[in-house]
């Protein structure tokens, strides 16, 4: 297998955050001569390495605070890594087009119409206005918007905004999809449609990394599971195997008091 068959290569990835316990300038002045450092290092991810072959769908699971979202944010380039390597490449070896679905309505402006937001969000994801106009109709149709697309987002319900966000992101022809727990929103029918679309993306050979707490979704969609625990890869492999171990772990955690 040549290296271009891998969509994502993560090697020895570390991410530290600095946490400030006293935020006000005044308190910091007062504590200037005390021993305790105002910034404390916190390791969110430690020594993470994995490789995702092109076309694979990977679920990332773990308890709250285990580093799932941090990992996704690093892949989406929202955070800058502390050390290590992240490489995401398209089939032709160039840099991959990544569609981050971390928060579907983050790129929207409520005082603009749906149509204006499509162009804007498209540009955020790296598309020109012309490219967006070409797939404009299918975006509107997929999001089930109809003539609503010419009204301000302010007047839309949450579901409609999310549908638009998902629709734009998947229509920008990404190589890699990063999904953070966003499919849990929207009504039953739209969710079903999203899953159908994800299957279509899978059949087109797109690589998908998603974070979720819903293990049934994992069973339905994923081909592989990475289980993060306190910033480490606890287990990485076959869906059934990892989920079984994770369920045992969760059941144990529910009955013990201290940190696991």
């Amino acid at each position: 297998m040549t290296s271009t068959d891998n969509a994502i290569v993560v090697h020895d990835l570390h991410k530290h955050f600095r946490i400030r316990y006293r935020t006000h300038l005044k308190t910091r002045m007062l504590n200037l001569f005390k021993r305790q450092p105002p910034l404390q290092e916190f390791t969110a991810l430690r020594n993470i390495s994995f490789t995702v072959p092109r076309g694979q769908t990977v679920a990332v699971i773990g308890r709250n605070g285990s580093g799932k979202s941090t990992l996704l944010c690093l892949l989406a380039k929202v955070y800058r890594k502390t050390s290590g390597t992240i490489q995401m490449s398209a089939a032709d070896g160039t840099a991959a087009r990544v569609a981050p679905l971390l928060d579907l309505s983050a790129g929207f402006h409520l005082d603009l119409t749906g149509a204006e937001n499509i162009l804007f969000y498209g540009a955020v994801l790296g598309n020109t206005a012309r490219e967006m106009r070409n797939c404009f109709d299918s975006i509107v149709e997929f999001a089930e918007l109809g003539s609503k697309v010419d009204t301000h987002l302010r007047n839309w319900n949450e579901g409609a905004r999310l549908r638009l966000g998902f629709s734009i992101a998947v229509h920008t022809n990404p190589d890699i999809l990063l999904v953070d727990e966003v499919l849990a929103v929207g009504d039953e029918a739209f969710q079903a449609k999203c899953y159908a679309y994800i299957r279509k993306m899978q059949s087109l050979g797109k690589t998908i990394v998603f974070v979720t707490h819903d293990l049934r979704t994992v069973e339905r969609v994923a081909q592989r599971v990475i289980w993060l625990n306190q910033g480490n890869v606890q287990m990485d492999g076959d869906v059934g195997e990892v989920l079984q171990a994770y369920r045992v772990f969760s059941a144990g955690a529910a009955f013990s008091d201290g940190p696991v």
Partner: peptide
């Protein structure tokens, strides 16, 4: 802020 927390630009 909400935008730059979730999307790279």
């Amino acid at each position: 802020y909400t935008m730059i927390r979730k999307i790279y630009l």
